[in-house]
Amino acid sequence: MIINPETRKRWQRFKSLRRGYFSLLLMGAMIFASLFAELWINNRALLVVHQGHIYLPTYGDFLPGTTFGENYDWETNYRALAEKIKIEKNGDFILMPLIPYNPFENDFIEGEYPPYAPSAHNKHYLGTDTSGRDILARLVYGFRIAILFSLFLLAISYTAGISIGALMGYFGGKFDLITQRIIEILSNIPGLYVIMIIASIVTPSFWSLALLLAAFSWMGLTWYMRTETYREVNREYVTAAHSLGASHLRIITHHILPNTIAILITFFPFSVAAGITALTSLDYLGFGLPAPTPSWGELLQQGTDNLEYQWITASAVTALSLVLILVNFIGEAVREAFDPKTHTFYE
């Protein structure tokens, strides 16, 4: 794959901006860690050796208690099993993840009422929420859901925005005029309120909420794409492609898009932040994903309803701030890497 030297230069420039570059690395590490959250925050053990057989319960079907000699046939309580193995020393071996809780379990302490303060002894390093669920688990799994949601949202709205914007710029004329009017009308509908109304009548799912949000946010990119496409269409290399017999589709995808969308990468980090914020806001208001989905917005809501238990609000606010700050650093660095002033050639 031949990489355009201009692209290479931009990447070098980005890498040279240490703050943005390290933010990207850190963000990438966080996303990677959350994708494999089951390996380090989970109530399922990583490895159990029972009577000579090896079990890897993390991924895959649940293992009933009877598998390990317990007398119940619903999912094994691995923490209790770990205690049992420690005491009985019967040759079995169990390896639990770093944080042995999943984001849904209600872990109640006899005689005390939740929420419980952070405690290394209980391995609730950030404490629990009002239903006794581990906060760190809910943060990490919630982060995963928020990032995937945001990326999925991005994929849809960018694809729609880029395609329609490019078509508007390329074909112009009546198609452009009519589509512009439609976009103007759609842009004026207060999307967040409509989503809230819909969500109070029908509880949305992950996919339906993403599609709903995408329906109100795809318009943003069309303006940029339209102007850029208009400009490119009149350039001679497009006429040259025509003279070679290229189809409209080929001209748009091979010639116009590569020359216009490079700069969209500068929007990308901010769109990701916007997606995370949108989901968090909706969850905070109660119009987002249904309980008991782990969500930063829901954690924030619990926190503000119970300000006296500071660890709930503190965790949610810190996590959200960290992610948004990182994203902003990345976005700034990308923008600077694309700054044309350092790339103009004079002949």
């Binding site: 031949i2 355009n4 201009e6 350039r235 001679e236 290399y237 006429t239 040259a240 492609a241 070679l244 017999g245 290229a246 189809s247 080929r250 091979h254 010639h255 590569p258 020359n259 490079a262």
Partner: peptide, 21 residues
């Protein structure tokens, strides 16, 4: 300066007519 796509390598530019046909 204008009739060649600045983002295409020369190989790409020359291959294009053949690919189209």
């Amino acid at each position: 300066n204008e009739s060649l796509n600045p983002r295409h390598s020369i190989h790409s530019i020359l291959a294009e007519p053949l690919i189209i046909h």
